[in-house]
Structure formats: C-alpha cells, structure tokens
C-alpha cells in the first residue's frame, strides 16, 4: 500500500552531497515529496529529512540504498508512531478591506501569526504537522493565495530508537 514515509539522514556537509542523494532517488525512480536540510551542531555534518511516497518495499529499498552512499553516515526510517514531524509555512493571502475577519480567525484557529500587512495582502506564517499545514492551505484557497512557501517536513524520533546522533561521525569531539 502506498503511503508517505519519512527518512532521516546524517550526511557530510560537502558540495555535491544533495546531488548524490537526489540522484539516487531519481535513478531508482522514487519521488521526493519534500526535502529539508540544515547543519547540525557540527558544521561538517548536516541532517536531512526526506519525505516520499511508496509501499514497504520502496521505503526499505530507499533506506538501504541511501546507507550505501559514502556521504550518508546513517539513514533511518522515521515511523509515524515513533516520531514527530513539523513543517513551516509562509503564505501571502489577498485582503479585501473588510477587517479580514476570515483570515485572522483562520490564523487564530491554526495558531499562525501575521508577519506583514500589505496594502492588498498579508504575509503569515504557521508551523505544525504537515497534515495540519495541508489542511490550512486548503482553507486559504477560497480566500485567495498570492504565493506560498513550505519548508518541507522536519522529523525527529520521539523514542530511544532511531536516534540520529552525530557523535559517532563527528570529528569535533569537544
């Protein structure tokens, strides 16, 4: 059965690494739904979160193939029950001058906040589970979305397994 799955990776922070990882997905025919990457506490090491769609066979293959890449220190499947997943949304919505009640109440419902008031629009941001972001965007459509930008999901295990600690891979032992 096809469903979303999330892979967490510890990788070297070097030019070309993203290319190699994206290339692997491309070569094997797996789609990337979202990808987020940032430095860890050691600037030589980055952490990535990649969300894709597929069945058990595909998710197992993805993780095993990723673990073969030289620049991938560790890749694990972050199962839905044992991990949290958060995404950040920036959105620009049309305003119509009548107090913007609909927009502000929607933002209040979802815990978003307004960053900018323009003449004919507002810029808001919202953080939360990808599902919640998706739902929020759907509700913004009738209001008139001018543009939006999503960070892609960040995911972290909530338990004691699947911890992507960099200490085994970092040269900064301090």
């Amino acid at each position: 059965m096809n469903e979303r799955f999330t892979v967490g990776l510890i990788v070297t922070n070097r030019h070309g690494v993203l290319n190699r990882i994206a290339g692997l997905y491309g070569k094997r025919g797996y789609n990337i739904d979202s990808l987020a990457v940032g430095e860890t506490e050691d600037p030589n090491i980055s952490r990535m979160t990649i969300v894709s769609t597929g069945d058990r066979y595909i998710s197992t293959q993805v993780v095993r193939q990723l673990n073969k890449l030289y620049d991938v220190k560790l890749a694990v499947l972050l199962e839905e029950g044992d991990s949290v997943s958060v995404e950040h949304l920036l959105i620009k919505i049309k305003t119509n001058g009548d107090g913007n009640g609909a927009i502000t109440s929607l933002l209040n419902d979802y815990g978003g906040k307004i960053l900018e008031f323009g003449n004919h629009f507002i810029v808001a941001d919202l953080t939360g589970e990808p599902k919640k972001i998706q739902e929020f965007i759907k509700k913004c459509v009738p209001l008139g979305i001018i543009e939006l930008c999503r960070s892609g999901a960040l995911a972290l295990s909530t338990g004691t397994s699947n911890i992507l600690s960099i200490k085994d891979f970092s040269d900064n032992k301090s």
């Binding site: 293959q61 095993r64 673990n67």
Partner: peptide
Amino acid sequence: IDEAELGKNVR
C-alpha cells in the same frame, strides 16, 4: 554483503 540486494528482486 550488500543489504540493498536483499529483498530487491526476490522479495
């Protein structure tokens, strides 16, 4: 020796 081969073609 290659874990990715296990289950790749014969499941």
